[in-house]
């Protein structure tokens, strides 16, 4: 089975069946990562371009590694700052790279909607590796895979996302994906970081973390972006940490077998205490491993169909 789409732009417009297919495929591919020789010829001859207009360590490495394990050829383009500042427009960059024969673009961009724009410009496929404050679908998928792996299911679970909801593409992808898969999604953060209208989405909204965390199966802790401090969303890091930091004490209100997740990079001691980050409930490194598996699955489902069928 293949995905009947050219692009993966977000989880909002994906069905539960599509998400299920990606997670199932990822689960079966994960085994490859533990082999002594981590290489399969599934995407031999395919060219994948990672085009990153924003800094990234884990997402970029994860995509490139996934592509390489699948034997695709990868080209990586980094642009510091926006395309406009560089002089060449985003559109021209895309057309140039496509003319070189790229089969798939993996795009990270600070502007929400940039991958959607790209998907209209190029005939090749586009995978959104995070666009502005909009979506980060592969993060959402790897978070769901991690939850499913540890809990055996997603349906019926209570998942709390805590932190800077407003600026978070991770929160948005998670809330769409998790709600489609039947979880109860809670979001919590200071009122200044909860976007207007979020209560109209399939979530329960909280500003009090102690109340929000009560009885949840999963806590997904978002990174506080220190560079946003100048906009005055909260008075100080100290106060943020006091009210919204996930600590061992707070975690006691959650289910006894709660999972703690974080999309990284972490600010230890701010949104999460080191004891929790390194503690028994944390599955933060599992998330990273699952990220590679999810991206392998996606690349296969988008590119693997075209006649070159090789078993994994």
């Amino acid at each position: 089975m293949q995905l009947k789409r050219k692009d993966i732009l977000g989880l909002q417009d994906m069905t539960a069946e599509e998400i299920g297919l990606i997670l199932d495929t990822a689960e079966s591919y994960k085994e490859i990562l533990s082999r002594p020789v981590k290489k399969v010829p599934i995407l031999r001859g395919k060219s994948i371009c990672t085009l990153f207009y924003e800094n990234s360590t884990r997402t970029r490495c994860s995509f490139e590694l996934a592509a390489k394990i699948m034997s695709a050829d990868t080209t990586s383009v980094s642009v510091s700052g926006s395309s406009i500042q560089k002089g060449e427009s985003f559109k021209d960059t895309l057309l140039t790279l496509e003319a070189m024969g790229m089969d798939l673009f993996v795009i990270r961009h600070s502007a929400s909607g940039a991958p959607h724009f790209a998907a209209r410009v190029v005939k090749s496929g586009v995978v959104n590796a995070g666009d502005g404050m909009h979506e980060h679908p592969t993060q959402g998928l790897l978070d769901m895979l991690t939850i499913r792996e540890n809990k055996g299911r997603i349906e019926g679970l209570k998942v709390l996302i805590v932190g800077d909801i407003m600026h978070s593409r991770v929160a948005r992808s998670n809330l769409w994906g998790l709600s489609k898969m039947g979880a109860e999604v809670r979001i919590c953060g200071p009122a200044t970081l909860l976007p207007v209208g979020v209560d109209k989405l399939p979530v329960k909204t909280y500003t009090d973390l102690d109340e929000a965390i009560d009885g949840v199966d999963v806590v997904n802790v978002l990174r506080i972006q220190l560079e946003r401090m100048d906009r005055g969303f909260f008075p100080s890091i100290r106060e943020y940490s006091k009210f919204y930091g996930v600590s061992k004490t707070r975690l006691k209100r959650a289910k006894p077998d709660v999972l703690v997740m974080h999309p990284g990079p972490m600010n230890r001691g701010i949104e999460i205490t080191p004891e929790v980050a390194d503690g028994e409930f944390a599955v933060i490194t599992d998330q990273v491993t699952n990220g590679v598996a999810v991206r392998m699955a996606l690349l296969y489902l988008l590119l693997g169909g075209g006649g070159s069928v090789v078993s994994a």
Partner: peptide, 15 residues
């Protein structure tokens, strides 16, 4: 415009 559509799209809100 600030509101649910803006929140979903992750674009900067204009209240």
């Amino acid at each position: 415009n600030e509101g649910v559509t803006c929140t979903v799209l992750g674009l900067r809100p204009w209240p």
